[in-house]
């Protein structure tokens, strides 16, 4: 089929402009001498220095990482075990459990947020770090399960049989044979859980309490009360980190594609 290359490129470039425009603007203004984010008046780096003295921002950053890290680890472990359990064993009500697991994926986040808030209130749980992490675990687990499950279904079914023929019990089989072959699925599930947690606004909005202000919540309140360019600086640094990591991983995966092509 003949493709119109020029048209293709125009489409791709315009979509990328749309996607990167707001980010580019923020990076630009992080070097701006004026505080108001309106006109670019001159170049400065002092917002980057200010960043390290902005304690509430750094505190929120640490909280965010803490929540993301712990909820990722816990939901990855539970998710992996669950995916295998649902794959291997049959039990009463499995169908219902399977249906329930899709709920956090498909319903609007706000519904999950208020449901958790209601149940926390019912249980008289104090809102704070714990409730926040629990909420993040709740919405992450199904994504991990889906991701691990796709690895499980593409796994060679003979693998497990062979292991048990060789006399390994189910636990040994799981740790020695199954788990290693699930690593890609587990990692991509963990990655999804981590990025979902980092970015979550809606569910955190309902389930966080005093002392558990996360970066998204903090940014929400400062956008409402006026953003100073040190926030732009933080964004630029975050982007820089992402770019570096992405480039590294892209180089690695491109090598792989090249290898595959050969």
């Amino acid at each position: 089929m003949r493709n119109n290359k020029l048209l293709d490129n125009i489409v791709i470039i315009s979509v990328f402009i749309f996607l990167f425009l707001p980010i580019f603007v923020l990076i630009l203004f992080s070097f701006n001498t004026s505080e108001l984010n309106i006109i670019f008046e001159g170049f400065t780096l002092h917002w980057y220095k200010d960043l390290f003295y902005n304690r509430s921002l750094l505190e929120a950053l640490i909280n965010t990482l803490l929540v993301a890290l712990s909820s990722t680890i816990i939901s990855t472990i539970i998710g992996t075990i669950s995916a295998y359990g649902l794959y291997k064993y049959d039990f009463k009500g499995k169908k219902i459990i399977n249906e329930l697991l899709y709920i956090p994926i498909v319903i609007p986040e706000i519904v999950l947020g208020i449901s958790l808030l209601s149940i926390y209130t019912l249980m008289k749980m104090e809102l704070g770090m714990f409730t926040l992490i629990l909420a993040h675990i709740t919405f992450s687990i199904p994504f991990v399960i889906v991701s691990v499950r796709s690895s499980l279904t593409s796994m060679d079914p003979n693998l497990e049989q062979a292991a048990s023929d060789l006399g390994a019990d189910s636990l040994t089989t799981f740790f020695r044979v199954i788990l290693p072959s699930l690593v890609p699925g587990i990692l991509s599930g963990a990655e999804l859980a981590f990025s979902l947690s980092l970015d979550d606004v809606v569910i955190s909005y309902f389930t966080a309490g005093p002392g558990s202000n996360t970066l998204p919540l903090h940014i929400y309140s400062i956008i409402k009360t006026g953003v100073t360019p040190d926030v732009n600086a933080l964004i630029s640094l975050m982007l820089l980190t992402i770019f570096i990591v992405l480039t590294i991983s892209m180089v690695i995966s491109l090598r792989k594609i090249k290898g595959d092509e050969r």
Partner: peptide, 9 residues
């Protein structure tokens, strides 16, 4: 593909 990012992060 992005799993390396995660590990690094």
């Amino acid at each position: 593909m992005k799993r390396k990012i995660i590990l690094l992060l």
